[in-house]
């Protein structure tokens, strides 16, 4: 049986997820993900076309809060957590492209 996921697909998924894989990892994950996904494809043996999808078991709707301002965090506390901060802002290396 062909693997449920190809090496190229695993490489693409890793890029989407911002992970770098060595060749050996790529090999291993392709096999392991293939096995798990192959198992999952069992579900496709069922005709579920009439079944609605349930994303969440929680049935309550319209949970809202009132539009009231509550205290924010202390800025120094927050910036102390940052790997790099400059001028009261979070510093990052250059950004190569605009946001999508």
């Amino acid at each position: 049986m062909s693997n449920a996921i190809s090496r190229e697909e695993v490489a693409k998924v890793a890029r989407l997820a911002r992970l770098t894989l060595s060749d050996a990892e790529l090999e291993l994950y392709t096999e392991q993900l293939g096995q798990i996904l192959g198992h999952a494809l069992d579900m496709n043996s069922l005709d579920l076309s009439d079944v609605v999808a349930t994303a969440h078991p929680f049935g309550v709707t319209n949970v809202v809060r009132e539009d009231v301002i509550t205290p924010s965090l202390d800025r120094e506390t927050v910036l102390a957590m940052a790997p790099d901060a400059v001028d009261h802002r979070f510093a990052v290396p250059r950004i190569l492209g605009e946001a999508p």
Binding site: R65, V68, I69, T70, R75, V78, L79
Partner: peptide, 18 residues
Amino acid sequence: FCGCANHFGAEPNTNICP
């Protein structure tokens, strides 16, 4: 989705919470 002030022009990173 949080109670931080929606306020234009505040000092940077003063209207932030978890």
